[in-house]
């Protein structure tokens, strides 16, 4: 934490496959000890970016620096310090979990006795100590993923990069897995880069989030900042449903609501009225409806989570009109 230099530094990173631009002029800095979430739909260029950071794919232009090394020209130095969990991780299925990890330790030139201690410690940490002698072919998906995490940690990395680590694990497994990542990052001052298209999972663990669409990072920051920049004009949304038949358009109540200072807009979506407000005036609105003699079936104050942020960015990116970040 003492040195301020970012451990991951991407400058104008670009990757083109023929005419397709997979990653477009990406700029990103990640600090030591940070848990950064790379969020984006499938095919947004997340994996390509990660592969470029590891020097496994050559960028068309730009610079990818990891721990002060250029990932393209000195990948070995980078790979000594970075643990990478690919999205569809594979193990040698006819070997035991222990053997798989020992093999990785050997490739990292860790002396045998030290490797043995470290591997058994890691297996214990990810809760696989009882399955250590079982063949990986008999492991469940969640177990493989946990073995993958242990595998990544064998080399004692400074940074771990996890590509879609929660894919195909059941919800409780996901929660445990994310907790484990969080705990590891806090305990060992690990920098974690997590890519996913699952918003809620990212929300649970990440300090900062970058939203990645069509090869560009269109927004980055922590979640409150993201929602603030995005929904500055209308941070609150109240959703009301009135007993039918009823329509707000043309109803005298519409004018009443619109004259309120805090209300910035009214929309009717699927028989529900969406009232956008600059401040939280839910009680006032409820009261107004009741006083007008209308039967409220449903009233809800919506809060903007990552879902809405994500949705909003995708809407915008589809219309090609984003100018944020």
């Amino acid at each position: 934490m003492d040195n301020k230099a970012p451990v991951i530094e991407l400058k104008e990173l670009t990757k083109q496959y023929g005419t397709l631009t997979a990653v477009n002029k990406l700029n990103l800095n990640i600090e030591k000890g940070e848990v950064f979430g790379l969020l984006g739909p499938n095919g947004a260029g997340k994996s390509t970016t990660i592969l470029m950071m590891l020097g496994l794919t050559e960028p068309t232009s730009g610079y990818a620096g990891v721990c002060g090394y250029n990932a393209t020209s000195s990948p070995i130095e980078v790979k000594k310090r970075v643990g990478y969990l690919p999205d569809n991780i594979g193990f040698y299925e006819n070997r035991t979990g222990l053997e798989n990890l020992m093999y990785m330790a050997r490739l990292n030139n860790i002396p045998e006795s030290e490797a043995r201690d470290r591997v058994s410690h890691l297996l214990h940490k990810v809760g696989l100590e009882n399955a250590a002698e079982k063949k990986v072919g008999a492991y469940s998906r969640g177990m493989k993923q946990r073995l993958g995490l242990a595998d990544v940690l064998v080399k004692n990395p400074e940074i771990i990069i996890l590509d879609e680590p929660t894919l195909g694990i059941d919800p409780s497994g996901v929660r445990d897995f994310l907790q484990l990542i969080r705990q590891l990052s806090k305990e060992q001052q690990l920098t974690v880069l997590l890519s996913s298209h699952h918003l809620h999972q990212i929300q649970q663990v990440c300090d900062r989030v970058g939203i990645f669409v069509n090869g560009s990072l269109i927004a980055k920051g922590d979640i409150p900042t993201l929602s603030k920049t995005l929904f500055e004009s209308e941070p609150f949304m109240i959703e009301v449903e009135i007993k039918h038949p009823f329509s707000i358009t043309g109803h005298p109540l519409e004018d009443v609501l619109l004259t309120m200072e805090e209300v910035s807009g009214i929309k009717e979506v699927n028989r529900k009225i969406h009232i956008a407000c600059t401040e939280d005036i839910t009680p006032v609105i409820a009261k107004t409806f009741v006083e007008a003699g209308l039967d409220i079936l449903y009233l809800c104050k919506k809060e903007y989570g990552l879902d809405e942020i994500y949705q909003r960015y995708f809407e915008e990116s589809h219309e090609n009109q984003y100018h944020i970040a």
């Binding site: 496994l56 130095e77 000594k80 690919p86 594979g90 030139n109 080399k155």
Partner: peptide, 15 residues
């Protein structure tokens, strides 16, 4: 090895 995903894992090691 490529299809089973072990190749990527291997290539991510400092070799």
């Amino acid at each position: 090895e490529q299809n089973s995903g072990t190749l990527v894992r291997l290539m991510a090691q400092p070799i």
